[in-house]
């Protein structure tokens, strides 16, 4: 790979390269976009890997490059996490909205399956059996009034059944 480091020789040139990168880092830090910050950070890391000889002066430059890259990257991370956190309340609300939409759709499905009519038919059938048991246990003399009411209830259920059949 033909790279920007190949022809740099001596401390002065490395210093000049570092200053160029620091200038770009400063501009990138002020921008809203992340692409330049990431790109400059990467080049600052490449600076550390390519700068030589590893003497005291170069090490000092490497340290500045490292600090700058790290600050840019940390700033980017904190900003993006804040951005995501800023949308959380709206996403929570949207989640609830979808839950409501799902409930409404389930209600429609249940109506198409005639679940209410099924439930009414089942409950009425159970009630009829209970009423029949009750009627059988009653005395025709002393419980005459109750028997009349049970018969009335059976008649009402019969009418209800006819309605369920018609309506569903």
């Amino acid at each position: 790979m033909s790279d920007e480091w190949e022809d740099i020789e001596g401390h002065e040139q490395w210093q000049a390269k570092l200053e160029e990168l620091l200038g770009e880092a400063e501009s990138a830090a002020r921008e809203d976009g992340d692409a330049n910050r990431l790109a400059v950070s990467r080049r600052l890391t490449d600076f550390i890997m390519n700068s030589w000889p590893n003497d005291k002066a170069i090490k000092a430059m490497d340290e500045i490059a490292k600090r700058t890259a790290q600050d840019l990257l940390l700033q980017t991370i904190h900003e993006r996490v804040r951005e995501i956190a800023g949308r959380t309340a709206e996403l929570r609300q949207l989640g609830k909205e979808f839950q409501d939409l799902a409930d409404a759709a389930s209600t429609s499905a249940s109506a198409i399956r005639l679940e209410k009519a099924h439930r009414v038919a089942k409950t009425l059938t159970d009630s009829v059996h209970l009423l029949k048991d009750l009627r059988a246990s009653l005395d025709s003399g002393s419980d005459a009034s109750l028997i009349r009411n049970v018969d009335k209830a059976m008649d009402t259920i019969q009418k209800l059944r006819a309605m369920v059949e018609r309506e569903s």
Partner: peptide
């Protein structure tokens, strides 16, 4: 939120099935 999307998609499938 993605869980709610799954519940919603399931409810749509229930309508079709019904």
């Amino acid at each position: 939120s993605a869980d709610a999307l799954v519940v919603y998609a399931q409810a749509l499938a229930e309508i079709t099935k019904a």
